[in-house]
C-alpha cells in the first residue's frame, strides 16, 4: 500500500464520530454573542465613514498608514505627497478590499507582477476602492476570488519581535505599509 492509502485507511479506521460543520454548530450554540453579529463596534455603525475610521485606527495600531484620496485629488499627486523621495523604492499595487477588524487589505496575485514584489518592496502602497470594505474576516474570506491562484491579507509592514520582544518594523519585507482608499 502507498503511504496515501495507509494514511487514509488509518483515518477511516479511527471512526471519528460525525460532527456538524462549524457554522451549524454555531447557529445552535447558546453563545452570548452569535457569530452572525460580530463586534458591535463594527456592525452597529455600518455607514462607510465609521468603517473607514475604524479601519484607519486599526491600521495605525499595526504600524501601517491609511489615507483617503479625496475626489478633488489625483492619485498621483497624493502618492507623490505621501511618499516623497521614497517613491523610487515604493511598490504600488491594487488591493481588492479592506478588513476593518484587523487593518488588513486583500491583494490578489492576479493584480500584481511578481508575487514576491509585495515583500521585496521597501515601501508598499496598496490602493483600494473606497467602497470595498468589510467589517470582519467572516465577510472577507467570502470575497476572496474563487479562482485565486494566490492572495494575501496584508496587515501593516513586515515586523518582528524576536529580539527580546522589541517590535522592529521592516524585518524582512516592506518597511512601510500604506493603504490608500480611492474614491469612485
Amino acid at each position: 500500500m502507498s503511504d496515501r492509502d495507509i494514511i487514509l485507511a488509518a483515518i477511516r479506521a479511527a471512526r471519528v464520530p460525525a460532527a456538524p460543520p462549524a457554522s451549524a454548530a454555531f447557529a445552535t450554540s447558546a453563545a452570548p454573542a452569535p457569530l452572525a453579529s460580530p463586534s458591535p463596534a463594527f456592525t452597529t455603525r455600518t455607514d462607510d465613514e465609521a468603517l473607514h475610521g475604524a479601519f484607519l485606527r486599526v491600521l495605525a495600531e499595526v504600524g501601517g498608514r491609511g489615507v483617503i484620496c479625496q475626489a478633488t485629488q489625483s492619485l498621483d499627486e497624493l502618492l507623490a505627497a505621501e511618499l516623497g523621495v521614497d517613491k523610487e523604492s515604493a511598490v504600488i499595487v491594487r488591493g481588492r478590499f479592506a478588513v476593518v477588524e484587523n487593518g488588513a487589505v486583500y491583494v490578489d496575485a492576479a493584480d500584481i507582477g511578481a508575487r514576491n514584489s509585495i515583500v521585496l518592496a521597501e515601501h508598499l502602497v496598496v490602493v483600494v476602492p473606497y467602497a470595498a470594505i468589510v467589517p470582519t474576516m467572516h465577510e472577507a474570506v467570502r470575497l476572496m476570488p474563487v479562482d485565486s491562484k494566490c492572495g494575501w491579507f496584508l496587515s501593516g509592514p513586515s515586523k518582528t519581535a524576536d529580539i527580546e520582544q522589541s517590535l522592529v518594523f521592516g524585518a524582512q519585507g516592506s518597511r512601510t505599509h500604506r493603504v490608500i482608499f480611492e474614491m469612485g
Binding site: G103, V119, M144, S148, G151, W152, F153, L154, S155, K159
Partner: peptide, 12 residues
C-alpha cells in the same frame, strides 16, 4: 495582534 502581517493563501 488582530491578524499576522502576512497571511498568504496559495493554491497554484
Amino acid at each position: 495582534q488582530p491578524v499576522t502581517a502576512y497571511t498568504t493563501h496559495v493554491t497554484t
